[in-house]
Amino acid sequence: MHSSWQKALSWGILALGFAFLYVPIIVLIVYSFNESRLVTVWSGFSLKWYGELFSDRQMMKAVGVSLRIAFMSATSAVVLGTMAALVMVRFGGFKGKTLFTSMITAPLVMPEVITGLSLLLLFVSLDQFIGWPGGRGMTTIWIAHTTFCMAYVTVVVNSRLREMDQSLEEAALDLGANRLKVFFLITLPIVSPALVAGWLLAFTLSLDDLVIASFVSGPGSTTLPMEVFSSVRMGVSPKVNALSALLVTGIASLTFVGWWLMRRQEHKRLADLQAAKRQQEMV
């Protein structure tokens, strides 16, 4: 039913959309290899900005802080987010479910300045009354990131749980496994691709956050985006280009590998299914 001009229009729209999305990133990466300090004038290929980046101790320290926080936040967000998804999908109704659902959906859109400020004021008040968490630093950033990342994990795991055939759990129960075993032996393996995807998403979100971290960080816990932001505020610098290029390619390849692994698994599953069908037909 597709006429050729419709097809052309479709591809035109996509080409335009993808150009808009990717040209700035590509430009950024290309200019990270620029010899000149002036970011916009090409004067020859050079890796010197990468060298300068790696010798920037402050920057490298921030990378370490960010990676550590991202790792911890992603892990705890996956644990909490999976529990929340389980509650939403498998637990039916309970008192306060509407409130629970609201607290899952709201962090997805809540402006970061509000989340950041409110968490900071909470930590300060807590310090005042119970003496915890005792100043700001990695712990407070970890709590803040866990809270907003878990909402994303919940959404990802939620959709996978809903797709899952619940009779599998019932069958395992019927065969004598207790509820905890059913969860760890049946449910968890089946939703594991979503857990991996959720973890990766949470990891990149945490790694990326500037605003919330700025509010709740303390001395000695400067994250990478904070470091980048303070140098970007001063204007465009080729060192930041180099860092950005590394970040973009690193995260993109990580995402791509994750996506590719999941796709391969899916393909294998389909192939197995077809092989089984053929075998059945031959019998």
């Binding site: 990717y22 998403l201 500037l210 980048v228 970040l247 973009v248």
Partner: peptide, 8 residues
């Protein structure tokens, strides 16, 4: 792109 750094 939304998985890569917002700031960048």
């Amino acid at each position: 792109p939304s998985w890569t750094s917002f700031l960048v």
